[in-house]
Design a protein around this nucleic acid. Sequence first.
DNA 1: GCCTTCCTCTAAACCGGTTCAGTTGGATCG
DNA 2: CGATCCAACTGAACCGGTTTAGAGGAAGGC
Lengths: 342, 342
Amino acid sequence: MNREKVTIAVVAKQAGVSKGLVSFALNDRPGVAAETRARILQVATELGWKPSLRARSLSTQRSFALGFVIARNPDVLASDPFFTSFIAGVESILTDQGRTLVLSVVPDEAREVKTYRSLVADGRVDGVFLSDLRHNDPRIPLLSELGLPAVTLGRPDGDSPFPAVSVDDSPGITASVAHLVTLGHRRIAHVAGNSALLHGSRRREAFAAALRDAGLPEGQTVETDFSMADGSDATRRLLTQDRPPTAIVFANDPMAIAGLGVAHELGIRVPEDLSITGYDDIDFSRYVYPPLTTVSAAPMVWGRAAATTLLALMENGTADDVDLPAARLVIRGSTAPPLNPW
Amino acid sequence: MNREKVTIAVVAKQAGVSKGLVSFALNDRPGVAAETRARILQVATELGWKPSLRARSLSTQRSFALGFVIARNPDVLASDPFFTSFIAGVESILTDQGRTLVLSVVPDEAREVKTYRSLVADGRVDGVFLSDLRHNDPRIPLLSELGLPAVTLGRPDGDSPFPAVSVDDSPGITASVAHLVTLGHRRIAHVAGNSALLHGSRRREAFAAALRDAGLPEGQTVETDFSMADGSDATRRLLTQDRPPTAIVFANDPMAIAGLGVAHELGIRVPEDLSITGYDDIDFSRYVYPPLTTVSAAPMVWGRAAATTLLALMENGTADDVDLPAARLVIRGSTAPPLNPW
DNA sequence: GCCTTCCTCTAAACCGGTTCAGTTGGATCG
DNA sequence: CGATCCAACTGAACCGGTTTAGAGGAAGGC
């Protein structure tokens, strides 16, 4: 029995052709007679040959892997189930493509840039996902300069050569505010996320615009870093003032849940004394008490769309922006008419 | 100016030696005169040469990457911050090693096996982390047969050729029960995790043993899949019986938080009418109300230890088991003496 | 009937490292 | 002083694919 390692040379010999032709047949290149191609593929299957990824990588200068670099404080990251779901979505596409995901979790932006550079220098990945977009995001020119294909999660504010796969933040916030206004709330506050991040500031702007549209005065807004710790502090500050808001719109679910805890602790009943809305519809939101009215974003779908777009970009050199259905407001138990609107 | 790509050949020519010697110098092999080595390294830095990972991969048959395959239902995964933290810990070690993490998230066990096989077939990784150990885990013989170095997260029940990096589950559960017993609880129930998973059944056994040690009758135990949905259902069933428990020990924090929600919903006060303990000490637990008494497991430290051990195993061909400090009980507001112990 | 064209296929170079057999020259030894 | 040994180094093979220049032969055009 033939025990030697099956390489392209073995297949070629067995099929009575040259290595090159086997390569051509395998990659569906023109210039191979149909009959010959069939024979080659036949021999290949018989021998159980799988082309070596490493050899291929070396000669084609590709890695058949995609990269995702997450720059976040580990605390914020751990309490944010977004990424896990997003990644599950990405994987569901990659698996059938014979590609893998290289994940990097780094603590800060300096490391992030270094990571991108070394990912490229080592040729670890053929393309990357860009999340947590910032204002004038420096990663966009960086990746553009490095020549690495990328997809942005959300539409960047400046020019970008990369396709954007976006879910519009605004309608969800707008709907949240409208819902609260309809319930009779007039004093609505916003616990905003990090305004250096685009989705942080967009949610904040959407909040302000929604209040204006409702003819209400400007609402109180507290900026945070999206962490539960900050969310908790912000809520405490809002609720311990003289005339606390009757409703708070949180920029993400973890902060809303932290806010819920603070309210409980202060003896403020939710939703009777205070209405609360979140953003993301993470699993926890359904199970806390009262269950959270929040905005549902479908991160797995987002992951799938982002992966599909990135693959298309790498394949065709270009890909269109994708706008996913806007996140929908899910009304649960944390919102109700205020006992005393004014 | 020299614009050609810097390869080992360029460095060799520039330094006036052969390619082979450059390789030797780079890899600290004996047989290179100190002076020559210095000159070669000097030239290399001047030219900014970085050996090509791809070429290296091909000739050394290594990939300089580690793999982590997570087989979980996306829902359970998303609400479990454990992995994100664990991964952050792993990364903190890998970064300085020039290695990367290849992550796979798969929906079920069948896919999991396929993923390991293709990771090996493609030579994507040089070693893997094995989490969520099951009874007689089939992955252990599989990986052993495939010849892929691995580290198990926790000690497997059968024979294993791989080093285990473990945090003992039992003391945390034991301490939880002891704490409840000291408070005066007698009717303590357990919402257990999936008993097909080792940590699920170990926590369950620790719970039973702790009750025995306290001289209490067997406690009610409900098995779940670790999801919030199951945790919520289990809690509802426990609390709506004739003589509900006065305390519930949950096998993880997400379920404990879901349980807290159910108690609230049923008008059962925590901790006055019902004490609750969790496991993992995820960020959420500190911020719900009342904050959760739970067991703190330090997943980032675990990740670092696992990565270090796996690297040592790959380097030396062998590595010792590591026992991390047992998880500690963190007492917060969700536990208190029962109003009526019997 | 000869030249051109097209299709199929081969041989060899190439990607950029590692590794190993073997050469060289100086030091050591009897 | 010749044999021996060793450290330092070279050249070429090798990892396993892809790619390109060009060979060979059949078909088509004039």
